[in-house]
Nucleic acid binder design. Structure first.
Lengths: 360, 360
DNA sequence: GGCCGACTGGACAGCGCTGTCTATCATCGG
DNA sequence: CCGATGATAGACAGCGCTGTCCAGTCGGCC
C-alpha cells in the first residue's frame, strides 16, 4: 500500500520561518530560537551566524506560534469607565505598547460604576477568557467594580487611585507630594492669597491633593509672616463645577492672587471665568491645574499643571499584571508602585503684580 | 529497547481545551470546532449538545492556537501623529475592539509627518512584521508618510481625510454635507450674519467644510431676501488661531450673530473671546464647532457641533484592512467608505435675539 | 433495488515555535 | 589519564486548533 499522496497545502506560506533561518545558518531551529530569545549557552560564533541569517532572510517570529508553544498570549482586560476621561488616550497608548511587547492581548470593556453594570462587564470579560484586569481611574475607586472583580478572583491592578486599598496591586503618582510641590511653587512666586478648588469627594486623590496643599501652607507659615487662611471651594472635577467655584472665589474681597484647581478642567473654567471678569491670566490671577490633560495645552494661556506619565503608568500596570499572572500565583505580593510626576510650568502662573488686581 | 518514559509535562494546564469539550459532548474535536466557528453541516442535535458542553465546561478557544492553525493573527500598524489629536482615544477604542474581534494584533507607532521620521516609523513597523497600516488624521494627509508607506508596499486605510486620493482605501464622513447641514441649521434658526473660521489649509477636510458652508448660503440666497456676504477668517484648527479669528470677526460692525468654526477647539476659542467681550453665548452669539471632541462637552455652554463616529470609523478601517490583507490580494479594490455623521445640538446655538447684540 | 447527492462527522496532519532531555565536546583537578 | 563538570547544540514532542480529505448515513429517484 502506497503512502497517500501529499495533501495540497492550504495556502503557500510566504513568510520565512525559524527552520529557514536554521537551514540558512547551518544550525538547528532550536539554536535559532535560543538566539532570538536571548538565551545563553550559544557561542558568539553561532550567535553571529544566526543573527546574520535572520537579517538576510528578514525573519520575524510568528507571534501566534510563539504564544502557543510558550503558553503566553494571555488576555488582559482593560475596564474603563467615563470615556470623557482624558486619561484614556494616553493610557491606551501605554497599555498597548506594553501589551505588544509582552505578547499579551488587550481586551477593552466599558463599564459604568454601578453594581449591575459592573457585574455584566466582568462577566463579559470572563467569557472572553481574560486572566487579569487593569483599572484606570475613575473606575479604580468604584467599590461595585472592585467587588465584582474580586468575586471573580481576577488579579487587578488599579491605576492612579489616590489611596489604594492595601490588598490590590496599584500604580500611581504621589498626589500629596505633587500638590505640595505645586503649592510651594506658588508660594515661591510670591503669592499670599491662595485658593484651592477641591476635586470630587468620591475620589481619594482629591483629598490627597488638598492635604498636600495645606501642608505646604503650614510649612510656609512657620518661615514667613502670617498668611491669610486659604480659601477653599468644593469642586467635582467638571468644568462646570470649576466655574461655580471660581465665581465664588473671585467674588471675595480681597480676591485670591492664585487659584490651584484640583484638575485641568476646573482650572480651565477658572481661566474662563477670570476672562469674563476682565482679569488677565497670569497678570491679575495665577491659575494652576493638575493632570496635564489635553485641555491644559489647548486653552490660552496654557496651564501650569502637574503631569502624570499616564502612558508609563499604564505600561507599568500591564507589566505588573503579566508578572502576577505568569508567576506561579504565589508571588502575587500586592505591589504598589509610585511613579514620579512632574511640574509643568507654562503661561498660566506668574508672580503676583504689585498693585491689587482690578475688582469689579 | 523500551519506549522512553513519558516526559514530565511542562506545566499542568488548567484551561479546558477543545478535546475536553469533545469528550464531554461525545463528539470529535473537529465537530466542536465547527460548532464554535458557526460552520454549517452540523445537525442541530449535535450543535446543541456541543453548546451545552461548552457552557458547562466554560470553554473558550485558545486564541494563539486558533491564529496559528488558521494563519490569522496578523499584525496591523496604527501610525498616529499629533498625539494631542482628540481623535486618538476614541479611535483606539474602536480599533482595538475591531482588532480583538477579528483576531489581529494592533501595533502602535508614533510618527511626525517628516520624511525622515516617517521612514523610520515605517521601518519599525516592517521590522515588527506588520502587514497593513491604518492612518488616522492628521497623518492621513502627510505625503511623506504616504510615500514611505507605498514604497513599502503596505496596504493602507486612511481615515477622515477630506479628499482622499483615489488610490487608497479610506473611511470618512462627508465633510461637505455635514457643513452644509450645519449651516442650514444656523439659517433655519434665523441667523443672517454668518461667519466662518476655516481649518488648516493643509487638511483637505478644511476646504470641504468651507464649500459646504458656502453652498448652504447659496441655496438660501435663492429662497430668501439678500443676505450679507459671509465673513471668513483663516484658522489653523488650534485654540489660539480660533482666538485670533474670533477677535477679528467680533470687532466688525455689525458683528456676526453666528460663527461656524471648522473644529471644536476653535469654537471653544470663539466662546472664550465672546465671554471676554461680555457677550453671552448663545444669547448674543451663536457658536458651533465640528468634530464633537472632548472639549465640546467640557466647556460651557456646551457646543453644538458635528459628531463623527470616530470609534466606528476606526473599526471599519481595521475591518477593511483585514479584508484586504486576508483576501487574495487581488480583491484590493480601493474601497471608499462613507460613514454617517450627526448634528449634535447643545447649548451654544440659538435663534438670534431681536435687538442687536451689545457691541463694545 | 441500486445509485446519487446532500448532509454529517471523524481522522489526520500540521501551523511555527519552545521546553525538556540528551549527546557531544573541551576543560580541569586529582 | 580518568571521571567530573560545564558549555554548547540538537532531537523530539507537543502547544490547541483548523483545513482537507474521506467515510459513513439517509432520503429520494430512476
Amino acid at each position: 500500500m502506497s503512502k497517500p499522496a501529499r495533501r495540497a497545502r492550504r495556502r503557500p506560506r510566504a513568510d520565512v520561518t525559524i527552520k529557514d533561518v536554521a537551514r540558512h545558518a547551518g544550525v538547528s531551529p532550536m539554536t535559532v530560537s535560543r538566539v532570538v530569545n536571548g538565551s545563553k549557552y550559544v557561542s558568539s560564533t553561532t550567535r553571529n551566524a544566526v543573527q546574520r541569517a535572520v537579517r538576510e532572510l528578514g525573519y520575524s517570529p510568528n507571534l501566534a506560534a510563539r504564544n502557543l508553544a510558550s503558553e503566553r498570549g494571555e488576555r488582559l482586560g482593560l475596564l474603563y469607565g467615563n470615556p470623557s476621561s482624558a486619561y484614556l488616550s494616553e493610557f491606551l497608548v501605554g497599555a498597548l505598547e506594553s501589551a505588544t511587547r509582552l505578547g499579551v492581548q488587550l481586551v477593552l470593556e466599558k463599564c459604568e460604576p454601578t453594581p449591575v453594570a459592573s457585574r455584566r462587564a466582568v462577566r463579559r470579560l470572563l467569557s472572553g477568557a481574560v486572566v487579569g484586569v487593569v483599572l484606570p481611574p475613575p473606575l479604580c475607586e468604584s467599590s461595585a467594580v472592585r467587588t465584582e472583580l474580586s468575586a471573580a478572583r481576577l488579579p487587578v491592578v488599579t491605576v492612579a487611585a489616590g489611596r489604594p486599598p492595601a490588598d490590590t496591586m496599584c500604580v500611581r503618582i504621589d498626589d500629596y507630594s505633587a500638590a505640595l510641590e505645586m503649592t510651594r511653587y506658588l508660594i515661591s512666586l510670591g503669592h499670599e492669597r491662595l485658593a484651592f478648588i477641591k476635586g470630587h469627594p468620591n475620589q481619594s486623590a482629591s483629598e490627597e491633593r488638598w492635604l498636600g496643599f495645606t501642608a505646604a501652607l503650614q510649612e510656609a507659615a512657620g518661615t514667613r509672616r502670617a498668611r491669610p487662611a486659604p480659601r477653599m471651594e468644593q469642586g467635582f472635577f467638571s468644568f462646570r463645577s470649576g466655574l461655580d467655584a471660581a465665581r465664588k472665589l473671585l467674588a471675595t474681597d480681597p480676591a485670591p492672587t492664585a487659584i490651584f484647581a484640583s484638575n485641568d478642567d476646573m482650572a480651565a473654567a477658572v481661566i474662563a471665568e477670570a476672562h469674563r471678569r476682565g482679569l488677565d491670566v497670569p497678570r491679575d490671577l495665577t491659575v494652576v491645574g493638575f493632570d496635564d490633560t489635553l485641555i491644559a495645552s489647548t486653552i490660552w494661556p496654557e496651564l501650569t499643571t502637574i503631569q502624570q506619565p499616564i502612558a508609563r503608568m499604564a505600561a507599568e500596570a500591564i507589566e505588573m499584571l503579566v508578572t502576577a499572572v505568569r508567576g506561579n500565583r504565589r508571588s502575587t505580593e500586592r505591589q504598589h508602585k509610585l511613579i514620579p510626576h512632574a511640574l509643568i510650568s507654562r503661561q498660566s502662573a506668574a508672580a503676583p503684580t504689585a498693585g491689587a488686581p482690578p475688582h469689579p
